[in-house]
Amino acid sequence: MISTDEFPETITIGDQEYTVGSMNEQALAQLRGIHFCDQQIQQLNNEWAIADTARLGYLQALKLEMPQPPMPEVSDD
């Protein structure tokens, strides 16, 4: 479980600023939940970036494996 020391002293929700140290346990539990979700989103974004980079590499490799179209013949007429 994340301690309140890892949060900033205050958080802002909308236009309202709140002091983390004065929050009750239920509010802190919600804040920890938000923090967990933020971490998961960051992890998923990192994984997406890795997968996207790999996909681009596979696409490039696939292009190299595809047969090249024949060159059009040029007539001397």
Rank of each mutant, 00 (worst) to 15 (best):
A61W: 02
F7I: 02
L62V: 06
D5S: 10
F36R: 10
V20C: 13
M1L: 11
D52F: 06
Q68H: 00
E17M: 06
G21S: 12
L62T: 02
D76N: 13
A27E: 15
E47Q: 15
Y18N: 07
M23K: 11
G21H: 09
P69K: 04
F36S: 10
M71Q: 06
S3E: 12
K63N: 10
D15Q: 09
M71F: 10
P67H: 05
I34N: 09
Q26S: 12
I13F: 09
F36D: 08
L31R: 02
A49N: 11
M23E: 12
D76W: 05
Q16T: 12
D38F: 11
L31S: 03
M23L: 15
F36K: 07
Q43M: 13
R32P: 02
L31W: 02
Y18E: 11
I13T: 07
C37V: 08
I13N: 08
R32K: 09
F7L: 11
Q60D: 10
Q30M: 14
A27T: 01
H35L: 02
F7R: 04
C37S: 06
Q42D: 13
K63F: 00
D76G: 06
T10E: 15
V74F: 12
P69F: 03
I41C: 10
P69S: 03
Q30T: 14
Q40R: 10
M66P: 07
N46C: 11
I2R: 08
I34K: 12
E47S: 05
F7A: 04
L56W: 04
S3I: 00
K63A: 08
E17H: 13
Q26R: 08
I11A: 07
L28T: 00
L64V: 00
Q43K: 04
V20I: 04
K63V: 04
Q60W: 00
N24C: 10
D5R: 03
L31G: 02
D38A: 13
V74T: 14
F36M: 13
I11Q: 14
N24T: 07
E73F: 06
C37Y: 11
L44M: 14
D15M: 06
W48V: 11
P67M: 02
P72D: 14
Q26A: 15
L62M: 06
I41R: 13
N46I: 05
S22D: 12
Y58T: 06
Y58F: 15
Q30Y: 03
I13K: 07
Q43I: 11
Q42W: 11
S22M: 13
Y58I: 08
I50M: 02
T53C: 05
P70R: 12
F7Y: 05
M23H: 08
L64A: 00
P8F: 06
V74E: 04
P70Q: 15
S22Y: 09
D38H: 09
L64F: 00
L44C: 12
M71S: 13
A51S: 08
G14F: 07
Y18R: 07
D38M: 14
R32M: 07
A27P: 00
F36I: 07
L28Y: 13
L44S: 05
E17I: 13
G33F: 04
I34T: 11
A51M: 07
A27I: 01
T53G: 05
Q42G: 10
Y18A: 06
I34F: 02
L44K: 14
T19M: 13
A49I: 09
I50C: 01
L44V: 06
I41H: 10
V20K: 05
F7N: 03
D38E: 15
T12A: 10
E73C: 01
D52H: 01
M1N: 11
E65V: 08
Q40F: 00
C37F: 09
S75N: 00
